[in-house]
Simulated scan of single mutants.
Amino acid sequence: MILRRISDAFRKQDWFTVAVETLIVVLGVFLGIQLGNWNEGQADMRRGSAYAQRLAIDIRTDIRDRSNLLAYYEAVNDSAERTAALLASSSPDPRELVVNAYRATEYATHQPTRSTWDEIVSSGDIGLLPPDFVEDGWGSYFTDITANNAAQNALASSYRQRVRRTIPHEIQRAIRESCGDKRDEIGNVTGFRADCNLDVSDEEWATAAEALLSDPELLPDLRLHFSNLSSARGDLTGSLYSLQQAIGVLESGSTGAKRAPAE
């Protein structure tokens, strides 16, 4: 209709009408574009808010799991402390020494919950997240290897290798089966089981304990092992503090205004 009126005005050389009708068309296109941009911006805001909420849920899950992992390493450290005391004792209880020496070699790990983050990256929507979350580099958490480093250090520990090379396989298996890890309702380790009903004779305990006590390198290796455990516990504690801060940023209510290219 407007185009027909403009065409008629051209034929009649009615320049005022041409100008008015053209202005109406331009203004309509401009307002349409602005409305489209506003709608897209609102959709981005909603999507960014949904992403932030989902990331916060993922990180809260990770906080719970990493708290359990920290508790586990505290239990491992307690066993290491008890082992050191028993090694220094004049007449240590054989069963207690062997069980604690073995428990001090245990490890566990945890990987960040990445599903939401991977979706954001693959869709190029990082810029929709709260600016502080992006600018402060919180996304690096999802490639965090803190827990994995703790496990790798434990696996490479000379103390772990020495103890597991010394204690007979049958006793190690009995400890794992009847006196091993305690887990929560979803299978994460949180510590060690208290009910240790081990089918091992006194003679077997005494022989295994004597093998540990007679190894002059066991205590030096245990001292080095303490350093690894201290690093693991410190790193996990720092990670938990950082994750609490990340949740605060995600729940601040401010989201980004534009998309960013996937990284």
Rank of each mutant, 00 (worst) to 15 (best):
L219P: 01
Q111V: 02
A232N: 09
E135N: 13
A246M: 15
D118E: 11
G256N: 05
F30Y: 13
R4M: 09
S79L: 12
G187F: 12
I175Y: 04
S115P: 00
P112E: 00
R5L: 10
Q152S: 06
F30M: 15
I24Q: 02
T109G: 03
A9S: 13
R47Y: 00
Q13H: 14
P168D: 09
A43C: 05
D184W: 03
T143P: 02
Q161N: 11
R164G: 02
D195I: 01
V99R: 07
Q244R: 15
D65H: 04
Y159S: 05
G41E: 15
T109Q: 07
G36C: 11
R5G: 01
L243T: 12
S178Q: 11
S254E: 06
G139L: 10
T109P: 01
T105S: 04
V200N: 06
I186G: 03
E135K: 15
T113Y: 00
I24D: 00
S252R: 01
R64S: 00
T190K: 10
P130L: 07
G32I: 11
N39C: 08
S242H: 10
L129W: 09
S239T: 09
E177Y: 13
A209R: 11
N68S: 13
P216L: 07
I120N: 04
M45A: 07
F30A: 15
E40T: 15
I24P: 03
V189Y: 07
E74I: 10
R114E: 00
S115W: 02
D144T: 08
L23S: 13
E81K: 14
Y73A: 08
A208G: 11
T146D: 04
N197H: 09
S123H: 07
V200T: 08
G248P: 09
E119V: 05
T166V: 02
E135H: 13
L240G: 03
T116Q: 04
S67M: 06
G253W: 00
R46Q: 08
L86E: 04
V121G: 02
F133P: 01
N188K: 15
E203M: 05
S239V: 02
M45V: 10
R176P: 01
I63V: 05
Q13N: 11
I59Q: 01
P130F: 03
V76Y: 07
G248L: 10
F30W: 14
R54Y: 11
D8N: 13
W205D: 01
R47K: 10
I167F: 04
T255L: 03
E135R: 15
V20C: 10
A208V: 11
R5E: 03
E251V: 00
E135Q: 14
E21D: 05
A209E: 04
D93W: 00
W138C: 04
G180D: 02
D136T: 08
N188L: 12
L198P: 05
N68F: 08
L3N: 15
I2M: 15
D184A: 12
